[in-house]
Amino acid sequence: MTEIYLRLVDRILTPILLLIAIFLFLRGHDLPGGGFIAGLVAAAAIELTILALGSTATRDRYGPWLAPLLGIGLTVAVTAALIGMAGGGFFLGRWIQFEVAGETLKLGTPQLFDLGVMLVVVGMAVTYLLRLSEAAEAATPSAERQEPRP
């Protein structure tokens, strides 16, 4: 098991980071942010969990979602691009607007497409991080893992 402070940081920071990712994603169309950035933040959050709990525990938590994530992301992106077809063009944006508490919210296929981007980025980054961490853990005997490397 890893250091307790890392686990504590994970407990506190990972949910916050994931929330930030969602926040960045939602505001992305009008302010700095967006799917790519949000995906990277989410990947960083998951990496924190990997560092804190080890790859096995992380895989138990996110594993079932991980493999399909790339496929789902691509499907969502293509679907968003295809929705415009009915209106006469690939990638033709479709929008809906509604009022919530005085604020105008708009949702459209570009944002759906952005969601696909985000999922693919998360899937890609976490696939690499998990695999490499597993390799690193496999190469490190468990007794030595807590000690700093010479």
Partner: peptide
């Protein structure tokens, strides 16, 4: 066109969505 004031994002997900699709 893109109904977004973040130009970078609109370029990525709308105006040049083809590129982004290829990239992802």
């Amino acid at each position: 066109i893109g109904r977004g004031s973040n130009v970078v994002n609109v370029i990525l997900v709308d105006i040049r969505g083809y590129d982004t699709l290829g990239e992802i």
